[in-house]
């Protein structure tokens, strides 16, 4: 860039009008500006940042204290002290909320057996009460989404359209991974969307709120609490009730893949034996 670009000229004009300040004055000015900027940044930070750490140990309720005990015994090795996370082992739990804890621990996914693509559901290590205590601890530690109180399945007598609306929302939001029949599906590299056959309303609500494992978060601005309840209504009252009018066996509702297996294992096998029998009659 040459010195007579319009910008440079304007700058020169600007400074000439003010006069050249002394060196000391320039330094003082720089220091003052720096201080002001720091104060502004700090002020904005303190105004907006959550003050969770300030006086955390004293505020824990009795339930959370119990939860902390459990946490320090069973979770701390991967999630670190005060849920801050350990690199390459476990993520920070600040802000995940009790919904996340109740889903992950309540379904036995946490504590994990080993590090792998995704935690498998297994027999829960903690009872319901302990899960609540752990959830309370994590909630008080960093806040986050919580399960709402009240019934999570809509009453079809009061709200008969809930099941159809829930089905519609299910197909828009959930089937791409969990499948039309809720039988689950594969994701890349060993990850998967689990089957919904034995999911309880609380688990499903917590999963939508917290987005566990590879599931996206469906926050209340994406699916309102009512819409979440409608989806749960569809899954519990339609998919889980095993309403298969088409026969005794639903072939897992996996679609044409198991139907193809069935036509060979049942249809062709039966008929080949029949043809052996018929041709053998002489």
């Amino acid at each position: 860039m040459t010195s007579d670009t319009p910008a440079r000229r304007r700058l020169r004009v600007f400074s000439r009008r003010r006069g050249v300040p002394s060196r000391a004055r320039r330094r003082l000015g720089a220091a003052v500006r720096m201080l002001a900027a720091l104060a502004l940044a700090g002020g904005v930070y303190t105004a907006f940042a959550p003050g969770a750490f300030a006086d955390e140990p004293k505020q824990l309720s009795a339930t959370a204290q119990e939860g902390k005990q459990l946490y320090d015994n069973s979770c701390i090795s991967c999630h670190g002290r005060d849920g801050q996370g350990v690199e390459d082992r476990g993520p920070s739990l600040i802000g995940v909320g009790s919904a996340s804890v109740e889903f992950q621990v309540g379904t036995g996914r946490m504590p994990m057996t080993r590090q792998e693509a995704q935690a498998e559901q297994k027999k829960p290590q903690f009872d319901k009460n302990q899960v609540k205590q752990l959830g309370q601890y994590i909630q008080e530690l960093g806040g986050g989404p919580q399960l709402p109180a009240g019934e999570l399945v809509e009453n079809l007598e009061d709200n008969p359209e809930a099941i159809a609306r829930g089905g519609e929302l299910f197909r828009v939001n959930c089937t791409s991974c969990h499948g039309f029949g809720g039988g689950g599906g594969a994701l890349s590299s060993g990850k998967f969307a689990p089957a919904l056959h034995d999911a309880t309303p609380e688990e499903m609500y917590a999963a939508m709120l917290s987005g566990p494992q590879n599931m996206p978060v469906f926050g209340d601005n994406q699916l309102t609490p009512e819409e979440k309840r409608e989806i749960i209504t569809y899954i519990t009252l339609q998919l889980q009730e095993d309403k298969d009018p088409g026969g005794l066996f639903n072939l897992g509702r996996y679609g044409p893949s198991t139907e193809g297996v069935a036509i060979f294992l049942v249809g062709i096998t039966l008929l080949v034996f029949t043809s052996l029998w018929i041709a053998g009659k002489s």
Binding site: T175, S176, A193, G255, S257, G260
Partner: peptide, 25 residues
Amino acid sequence: FQINPIWLFGPYRAAEVSSASQPDW
């Protein structure tokens, strides 16, 4: 054996798709 439970699949919408969508064998 139940086959092709169309009531679970819902009406076709371009935005809706299911995992395990396969053609017949």
